[in-house]
């Protein structure tokens, strides 16, 4: 690990972290400020929801959740936070080494006296730090929002922690998978289409998995592995799926290392 690279990378993404954190703060606050009215008019809500097509409710994971309970509402809200975290982490994963290659600074970095492994580890640790910083801000904002708008409702801290941890696992998943895809394709010219595609693709699959019911789409989409509605409902992880998720992340990181050490850095063309 090279402290020089770590600091450089961490700083480079700091602005992006602040922008994402700002958006997430707004999302959490705006959403959560609605909780008191949801909680008050729980019966009315249930009535209204009954009029929605069941498929739509399934797609948004609203069938099993009790939106009038504090954690139920937070879980519902956190699904959108997860989507944002996925796009952000995907951005960092897809861009981790590909940005240096498309902007042609890879030559500069890799002609320095550092090994490829050092470069990759330093970059990964910096990106993970950036993501954890985002998560820390989300945590603080969530606690503040809950304190402000709890409307006298109680909640289990352990459930909140699990939901927040699911956010971290999801970040690592998209970081790892984004990275390995970026190393498998020949060249990534722009990062955003890839990360948006991956995040929304996985999100849509997760929604479909709700509608189709029988088909086992939950195995392939991280939004099902770490479904906040499931965590809230069961006050725990869906252990096999979470293990599968972590395994995919670890395999992606191992494969990325293998690929990066053997990679030919493309020249100016």
């Amino acid at each position: 690990m090279s402290a020089t690279i770590y600091l450089h990378e961490f700083r480079t993404r700091l602005k992006s972290v602040l922008i994402w954190s700002g958006s997430l703060t707004a999302l959490v606050f705006f959403f959560f400020s609605l909780f008191p009215s949801f909680a008050e008019q729980a019966a009315l809500m249930q009535q209204m929801m009954a009029n929605f097509p069941p498929a739509l409710l399934e797609a948004f994971g609203m069938t099993k959740v009790d939106l009038s309970s504090l954690m139920g509402f937070y879980g519902f809200l956190f699904a959108f936070v997860q989507l944002c975290l996925a796009i952000q982490a995907g951005n960092y994963g897809f861009g981790l080494v590909s940005i240096e290659e498309s902007e042609l600074t890879a030559d500069f970095l890799l002609s320095k006296p550092v090994s490829r492994l050092q470069v990759l580890i330093s970059k990964l640790l910096a990106a993970v730090s950036n993501l954890l910083l985002t998560m820390l801000i989300v945590t603080v904002v969530s606690l503040v929002a809950i304190a402000l708008f709890n409307d006298g409702h109680e909640y289990a801290a352990s459930t909140l922690i699990l939901v927040l941890v699911s956010g971290i696992l999801l970040q690592l998943f998209f970081l790892g998978v984004g990275l390995v895809i970026s190393l498998l394709v020949k060249r990534i010219r722009s990062v955003t289409p890839w990360s948006l595609g991956l995040a929304f693709g996985a999100y849509v699959l997760s929604a479909f998995s709700g509608i189709l019911g029988e088909i086992k789409l939950e195995y392939i989409t991280p939004f099902k592995h770490l479904d906040p509605a499931y965590i809230v409902l069961n006050a725990g992880f869906n252990t096999p799926l979470v293990l599968l998720n972590v395994a995919v992340t670890l395999v992606s990181l191992a494969a990325s290392t293998w690929l990066y050490l053997r990679r030919d850095i493309p020249a100016v063309s």
């Binding site: 480079t12 902007e103 042609l104 600074t105 030559d107 500069f108 002609s111 320095k112 006296p113 550092v114 090994s115 490829r116 050092q118 100016v268």
Partner: peptide
Amino acid sequence: HGPEIRRDIGYLPSEVFYYEG
């Protein structure tokens, strides 16, 4: 021995690209 060797190498490419910001 890449890293060790590169410690004593100075490299100037034909087209230079650095972190723009």
